[in-house]
Simulated scan of single mutants.
Amino acid sequence: MTAQLSDTAAPPAALPGCATVARMLGASPAGTAADMRCWLLIEQPGPWTADALEKLLDEAFPAERRELLENLRRSHGLRPLLIRRPGKHQRDPERPRSVYVGGGEPGNRWLERLEIRDLSELAELDLQAVADGAGGLGTRVRGPLFLVCTHGTKDMCCAVLGRPLASTLDTNHPGRAWEVSHVGGDRWAGNLLVVPDGFLHGQLNPAEAALVAKSALRGQVEPEQLRGRTSAPTAWSQFAEIAIRRQTSLSGLDDVVAVREEPLPESDARVVTVRGGDDFYSVTVRRRSAPPRGESRCAGLVQPAGYVTENIAQL
C-alpha cells in the first residue's frame, strides 16, 4: 500500500532513511539507471571516504589523462568505479589490485581483468579502447560480476541495505560478488549492478538479489525492481524496455531493446519504439506529473521522479 508521508518537520534522527521513504511512497525504480555503457573497475580495499573515487583518480592519472577519462565518461558512458571484496575492509599492500574493464552494449558485452601493483599503472591503460569496446587490455572474464553499492559515506542507506546483499551474493557466488562505490540513486538501495550485462536493479533484499544473480547466470534479466539497462539512451527508453519485458515475459539480455524515441508535440510524453523478440512495439511513456514526496534523514526531501506507461501497441 502506498503511504503518504507527512510534511511536518521532524528531528533528522527520527526520520527514516531515503530508501525507506521511497518504499513507503510506493516509488518505482524503473527508468532510473545511470548512463554506464562501459566500465573501469578499480579494486580499492579498505574504507571509502565520500570522495574516495575522485581522490584515487587524481592520484592515478596525470591531468591530461584525467581529462580524457572525464571526456570519455560524457561521450561514451565510460564509468570509473571502486570495488572491494565483501566483508572486512583491510588493505594488503603486498597483494596486487584487480582491475576490470568492459562494456555493456547489446551485441558487444565484454569483460577483461588485469592486475596492477601501483596506481600509476592505470595511466598506461588505453581508455579509448575501453570506450570503443575494442578490449585487448587483459584476460577475458566469463561474467557476470555482481556489484552491490555499499558506499555508506555517500549515503547510509547504501551501506545498511547493501551489505547484506553483498554478503549473500559472495556466499552463493564466490569470486563474482564485489562491493562497489556510488552508482547513483541511493534512494533505491539495495542497488545491484550486473556487469557486463549492464542492468542495474534497485530496492532489493538479499533473497531478491539472489534471484537476480541466478537469472543473470542463465543470461536472463529479472524485470521486477529493474532500474534499467545502463546503455539505453535515456530514462524513457529504459522505462519502455521494462514495460515490454513485463508484458511479454522476454528475459534474454538482448531480447528487448529500444530502437527509436520521439517526443510527443506539446506534451511531456515520448513515444519509444521497442524491439521485443521478433516484434516491434510503440510505447508511450509519460512523466508522472505529481510524484509523492517525504522527508528522510539522509537526503532531505525525497521526491522520486517517476514514469507511467500511457499506451503500448504492437506495430
Score class of each variant (00 low, 15 high):
Leu211Lys: 15
Phe239Leu: 05
Leu211Asn: 09
Ser249Lys: 15
Ala33Trp: 01
Tyr307Ser: 05
Asp254Thr: 08
Gly252Val: 02
Leu147Ala: 03
Asp58Tyr: 05
Ala27Glu: 09
Gly306Phe: 01
Gln90His: 10
Thr2Gln: 11
Glu94Asn: 12
Asp51Tyr: 07
Asp51Gly: 11
Gly185Trp: 08
Leu204Gln: 12
Leu217Phe: 15
Arg227Tyr: 07
Ser98Leu: 10
Thr248Gln: 15
Ser215Ala: 15
His182Trp: 12
Cys149Lys: 00
Leu200Met: 12
Pro62Met: 11
Leu40Lys: 05
Pro80Val: 07
His201Gln: 05
Phe146Lys: 04
Tyr307Gln: 09
Arg109Gly: 02
Ala177Thr: 04
Leu165Glu: 00
Arg140His: 14
Pro206Tyr: 05
Asp51Ile: 13
Val274Phe: 10
Pro196Ser: 08
Gly276Thr: 02
Gly107Met: 08
His151Leu: 05
Met156Tyr: 00
Arg85Phe: 04
Ala240Asp: 05
Val212His: 05
Arg65Glu: 04
Ser296Glu: 06
Val259Tyr: 01
Glu310Ala: 14
Asn311Lys: 15
Thr248Ala: 08
Ser251Trp: 07
Pro223Ala: 12
Ser251Ala: 15
Glu241Phe: 03
Phe61Tyr: 10
Trp48Leu: 04
Leu161Gly: 00
Val194Asp: 00
Gln225Asp: 12
Phe199Ala: 02
Asp254Cys: 05
Glu310Ile: 09
Gly190Val: 13
Arg23Ile: 11
Arg85Met: 07
Arg37Trp: 13
Ile312Cys: 09
Val221Asn: 05
Arg66Phe: 02
Glu43Thr: 05
Ala216Asn: 11
Gly300Met: 13
Leu204Gly: 05
Ala213Pro: 10
Thr32Arg: 11
Thr32Gly: 05
Thr20Cys: 04
Gly198His: 00
Val274Lys: 12
Gln203Trp: 01
Asn172Gly: 04
Arg73Met: 05
Val256Lys: 03
Gly202Gln: 02
Gly175Asp: 01
Gln90Thr: 15
Leu147Gln: 00
Arg293Gly: 04
Lys55Asp: 14
Gly102Lys: 01
Leu147Thr: 01
Gly175Pro: 02
Trp39Asn: 03
Gln203Ser: 14
Ser237Thr: 12
Asp279Lys: 14
Thr273Glu: 14
Asn172Trp: 04
Asn191Met: 09
Thr284Phe: 03
Arg140Met: 11
Ser98Gln: 10
Arg109Ala: 01
Val194Ser: 03
Ser120Phe: 00
Ser6Gly: 08
Ala258Trp: 01
Thr153Val: 00
Ala243Asn: 09
Val183Lys: 01
Cys149Arg: 02
Val274Pro: 07
Ser98Trp: 09
Pro223Cys: 07
Arg293Tyr: 00
Thr150Trp: 07
Pro96Gly: 06
Gly306His: 02
Thr309Gly: 02
Arg113Asn: 11
Gly175Ala: 04
Leu165Ile: 15
Leu5Met: 13
Thr273His: 11
Ala60Tyr: 03
Gly17Ala: 08
Thr273Ile: 06
Leu111Trp: 07
Val195Glu: 03
Val101Gly: 02
Phe61Met: 13
Tyr281Ile: 07
Ala60Phe: 02
Val141Leu: 09
Glu59Met: 10
Thr168Asp: 01
Glu70Cys: 01
Pro45Met: 04
Tyr281Lys: 06
Cys158Ala: 15
Arg163Thr: 10
Gly300Leu: 09
Thr168Met: 10
Arg37Met: 06
Ser98Val: 10
Gln220Tyr: 08
Pro96Lys: 08
